[in-house]
Design a protein around this nucleic acid. Structure first.
Lengths: 138, 138
DNA sequence: TCCGGACTCATACTAAAGTACCAATTTTGT
DNA sequence: ACAAAATTGGTACTTTAGTATGAGTCCGGA
């Protein structure tokens, strides 16, 4: 968003400068006018493409904006959320325990709580629901 | 984001209008050149955005194309693939068995074969790998 | 017609996953 | 500082998941 503002500001400034230049030049030279017009056309065309690509790219790479509010609403704690992420990566309870440097018992507790909060019967179902609720990346 | 673009476009147009008005107020000169330049800039800018949107639209409408060739390459059969889809929906072996009207033993066999073919140790890992391989919708 | 692959199912396991309950720390907000 | 919430961990248990192995059925291609 801030980038877009800067780019457009720069465009407006460039316009002003061009107006200034054209005022001094078009009386003396004739070719420079067409040159200026052509250049401006090309530049603005490219800028249009560039801006559009930027904005569309952000929409494409953000179809999965994580809904932190929903995580809070469900009462999922920080640690539980970490476990949820690792579950979705296909890790076993033991592997998650080793990753987070805690015991497997602890992970089992977290997973049980997660299943309750996500209203799921299995970790695979928890993964699916979490993605539907947009609290996990697709 | 799109709003910003429109707002700034409007600003540029307003600038052009202002230039025109200011010209009539004190200089009273021919301003057709500046107007032309400005119009061309805006038009080409919009054309750039339009063209880019057209070309990018194709990519956006195909975010998760299932790679049937990869399914074949991995030697995953029709029935195994059905099971894989139901696994990714969070169903248990028993639920999958009831859905496909076969016994749980059959599903276990399919799952075991799937894990081998996907080089996974757990069904959760199979889900993740299958999505990475684009043989399952995200 | 014969063969191989796909699909089915069973038994007998072992290994994970998940539940229930309890309890000790640690963190955190007021 | 104190209560509440979060994190950790344990035992004991039930339920799923997954492996290994064998075997019967069905179907399409050589």
């Amino acid at each position: 968003m801030r980038k877009t503002i800067f780019v457009f500001s720069a465009l407006i400034i460039a316009l002003l400068v061009l107006f200034r230049l054209s005022r001094y030049s078009y009386v003396s030279e004739d070719i420079s006018i067409e040159l200026t017009i052509g250049s401006i056309a090309v530049i603005f065309f490219l800028v249009g493409i560039y801006i559009n690509k930027k904005t569309l790219h952000k929409e494409k790479s953000r179809p999965t904006q994580i809904d932190h509010k929903k995580i809070e609403q469900l009462g999922i704690s920080k640690r539980e959320y970490e476990v949820l992420i690792l579950i979705s990566k296909g890790l076993s309870n033991k592997e998650i325990a080793d990753t987070l440097f805690v015991s497997e018992s602890t992970i089992k507790t977290h997973v049980s709580n997660l299943l309750l909060k996500l209203d799921a019967q299995r970790r695979t179902q928890a993964i699916k629901k979490a993605k539907e609720l947009q609290i996990l990346e697709q």
